[in-house]
């Protein structure tokens, strides 16, 4: 079984992210790390490949920013990495990204299962996950909290999905795309040997032209990034005994009409 994983470089969870003077997004000296949701999909891919004696490939699309996320994936134990090297993809919409990803999957030709993180924190969405599945014509199982079984011979997968109203058990045919939740596993830390192997790895780079894709207009585009409005919250610290504090709090909340 050949499992495809995808990742991106995103600002460290604790980083302050701001818009700089040129209007570009900046996180200063803070580290660029693997998209936090991808740690779970990378781990799950490695585990499933181990159990099925399969292989894993991790793909990133966009500029140099994502190279360290690929190296981290290799250090965790993913076997192969590919960068679809086109900086424009970082500024394009989810459909352009999904089209490039789908073309890479078709180029690889033998992918049975794609495991993705629930969403990407930079773009704040998971729409590219679903769109990749759709462009490939494969089923999409999102918000997976547990893989119950993979039957390679019958080409089926059973998973548990975490939806707002409860847990759903679903069976699907393979190949399929799944996205996984944080609950699914405990991601490993890269081993020393893994880090050394990743540092030496020569990661192949594919261009959009290699994938037979031309640049195209995006129907969804970013006009500008903005810092959050606000900073105008003035905090009232409630004083007095605990009973007085509680009285005041309830009175304020009734005035605010939020109860």
């Amino acid at each position: 079984m050949h499992i495809l994983l995808m990742t991106r470089g995103t600002p460290d969870t604790a980083a302050r992210v701001v818009v700089d003077d040129s209007g570009a997004v900046s996180w200063g000296d803070a580290a660029t790390v693997v998209n936090p949701w991808d740690e779970y999909s990378l781990e799950e891919g490695i585990r499933q490949a181990e159990q099925t004696d399969g292989q894993t490939t991790v793909l990133a699309l966009g500029g140099e920013l994502h190279l360290d996320a690929l190296k981290h994936s290799l250090a965790m134990g993913v076997q192969n990495a590919i960068l679809v090297d086109d900086e424009q993809l970082d500024a394009r919409d989810s459909l352009a990204y999904a089209r490039a990803a789908a073309a890479a999957v078709q180029q690889l030709a033998d992918i049975d299962l794609i495991i993705l993180g629930k969403e990407s924190v930079d773009v704040g969405t998971d729409q590219h996950n679903v769109q990749l599945a759709r462009l490939l014509g494969w089923p999409m199982l999102s918000y997976v909290s547990r893989i119950l079984a993979i039957d390679e011979a019958a080409k089926t997968i059973r998973v548990e999905r975490m939806l707002e109203q409860g847990l759903q058990t679903v069976r699907s045919r393979l190949p399929a795309v799944i996205s996984v939740m944080k609950d699914i596993n405990e991601p490993r830390y890269p081993s020393f040997m893994g880090i050394r192997r990743a540092a030496r790895a020569d990661i192949p780079r594919w261009s959009l032209a290699d994938l037979g894709l031309a640049s195209q207009e995006s129907p969804a585009e970013v006009l500008e990034y903005r810092d959050l409005p606000g900073g105008d919250v003035s905090t009232e610290i409630l004083a007095g005994s605990i009973a007085e504090q509680a009285e005041q709090l309830v009175a304020r909340l009734l005035e605010e009409k939020v109860l």
Binding site: D93, Q131, A133, R134, L163, E164, S218, P219, A220, E221
Partner: peptide, 23 residues
């Protein structure tokens, strides 16, 4: 943009070649 809403509109936007923003 519930779990289902996100899946449905993302898939359908891809089918239709339409632009989509979430949240």
């Amino acid at each position: 943009a519930s779990s289902r809403g996100r899946e449905l509109l993302a898939a359908s936007a891809a089918d239709c070649g339409s632009g989509l923003f979430t949240e």
